[in-house]
């Protein structure tokens, strides 16, 4: 693909972009929109959440997975940053901790594609001793 250098280039790309998106939406994953939230507070950013988000955005597009990646605030798991929340269609969201690009790759290949659980899940019922999350 040639490099897009300006908004005019972007405009010229839009037809191929449209067909790419409609192809993906008509594909086998049509109803399967995966929603991912990257915790992007000070704690997350300081531990590398930006790099993880870059990786997710680029790889999910390359691998043709129908998904939306957004940012969210601190989920209270500062000790385990970077954290991401992944919601597969029709399932409860799952939070993963200590996500670097290697872990993110594993999450895409195993959990997002096949629903296979991988290490690093933060249980939602996790509570500290004083009862605060």
């Amino acid at each position: 693909m040639t490099k897009v250098k300006s908004l005019a280039d972007l405009k010229m790309m839009k037809d191929s972009l449209k067909s790419k998106i409609s192809l993906r939406e008509k594909g086998e994953n049509s109803e399967n929109l995966v929603q991912i939230k990257v915790a992007m507070a000070t704690c997350g950013i300081a531990s590398g959440a930006k790099v993880v988000m870059d990786f997710l955005l680029e790889e999910l597009d390359k691998r043709g997975i129908n998904s939306v990646v957004t940012q969210t605030g601190c989920m209270g798991y500062c000790y385990a940053e970077p954290t991401i929340e992944v919601k597969r269609p029709g399932q409860e969201p799952v939070v993963f901790g200590y996500v670097d690009t290697k872990k993110a790759d594993e999450i895409i290949e195993k959990y997002i594609k096949n629903g296979e659980l991988v290490d690093g899940i933060i249980p939602t019922n996790y509570e500290t001793i004083d009862g605060e999350k």
């Binding site: 972007l10 405009k11 790309m13 839009k14 972009l17 449209k18 955005l57």
Partner: peptide
């Protein structure tokens, strides 16, 4: 707004849009 206008209806939060927007800003 400028990006949304150039995309003419393609959602700006689609994963295939991000790399292109990044390239535009990078080269500029």
């Amino acid at each position: 707004l400028e990006i949304a206008q150039a995309l003419e209806g393609i959602p700006i939060n689609d994963t295939s849009v991000f790399p292109l927007v990044k390239q535009v800003i990078e080269s500029s």
